[in-house]
Design a binder for these strands. Structure first.
Length: 282
DNA sequence: AATCGCGCCTGACGGC
DNA sequence: TGCCGTCAGGCGCGAT
């Protein structure tokens, strides 16, 4: 890690982390030809096809983009789709670096650098598609990007009418809006003063406007932090402290609410932990 | 159409 | 020291 840049991630990759990783790897892989693919384990969330290596070998990465939490390495003949799941990591290493546990996949580039995918839990996935991205089943039907204009109060208001689903689960549905994970859902709802269990269809246009601003704010704040630590990484000082998120309620069960002091509550919603303040959020 | 619960998986952690 | 149960969760999918 002294001579090379290395994008590693300590916590689960939420959208700001994925965007930071995108910016980190882009200058290192863009314009490079993938001369070899090393597959050590096909058994990811979506099993790697037998043809994956032969399809990808010889492709040149033209651009690195992102859709939600999917990283997209765009090549002439198609696109490599990478999702980091819960525990996926990407790193750039000199080709030939000895693999460690859970190093499932390498892309070896023409400059003798290697993009390596490591994922202990294997909730992540790596896919190749030659079709237009809009037609890929995992990408078709996704909602707008949270940091773009397509996410606004009027949009959430319209999509939520007559829906009984709890608002937290509503905003975590990638068909409504992409990239809002469990942590930032709790944080944004706290900022907006909205109770996470409130039915999505029973929130006013005004309050959806506030919620959207809160979502954009927490994501931008995290992105700013990622950008800061990304510079540290690319200076390769070995600083492992990555994304010390400024969380106000997530993981704070029983601790005083930062606004009113009442204990933060933890509940389960759809097999996910939700944290909120019962006084500040209605 | 909307909603609910399942399952994938490893590692961290607490209790004994 | 080790074993075992619990929890953590992104997200697509099948059932209702």
């Amino acid at each position: 890690m002294k001579a090379t840049s290395n994008c590693e991630e300590e916590t689960m990759p939420e959208l700001p982390e994925v965007e930071t990783i995108r910016r980190c790897i882009m200058p290192l892989v863009q314009g490079r030809e993938i001369v070899r693919v090393v597959v050590r384990n096909r058994d990811l969330r979506w099993p790697l096809s037998n043809q994956f290596a032969s399809r990808v070998t010889g492709q040149t990465v033209q651009a690195v983009s992102r859709r939600g939490k999917y990283l997209l390495l765009r090549c002439v003949a198609g696109t490599i789709i990478i999702h980091l799941g819960m525990s996926g990591k990407l790193s750039i290493l000199p080709a030939g670096t000895a693999p460690v546990k859970h190093d499932h996949l390498d892309f070896v580039f023409s400059n003798n650098q290697c993009l390596r995918f490591n994922d202990p839990r294997r909730f992540g996935s790596v896919l190749w598609t030659a079709k237009p991205l809009a037609e890929h089943p995992l990408l078709a039907g996704l909602g707008p990007e949270p940091l773009e204009a397509g996410l606004n109060g009027a949009y959430l208001y319209r999509r939520s009418r007559r829906r009984q689903l709890a608002v937290k689960q509503f905003i975590m549905d990638s068909h409504i809006v992409v990239g809002i994970g469990n942590i930032y859902a709790s944080e944004a709802l706290f900022s907006a003063g909205i109770h996470p269990a409130r039915p999505a269809g029973r929130i006013s246009l005004l309050r959806y406007g506030r919620l959207v601003e809160a979502i954009k704010q927490v994501l931008r704040d995290a992105l700013r932090q990622g950008g800061t630590t990304l510079r540290d990484f690319c200076d390769s000082n070995g600083n492992p402290g990555y994304f010390q998120l400024m969380l106000r309620v997530y993981g704070h069960a029983g601790q005083p609410c930062p606004v009113c002091g009442r204990p933060i509550q933890q509940v389960r919603q759809g097999q996910r932990s939700t944290y909120f303040c019962g006084r500040c959020q209605r």
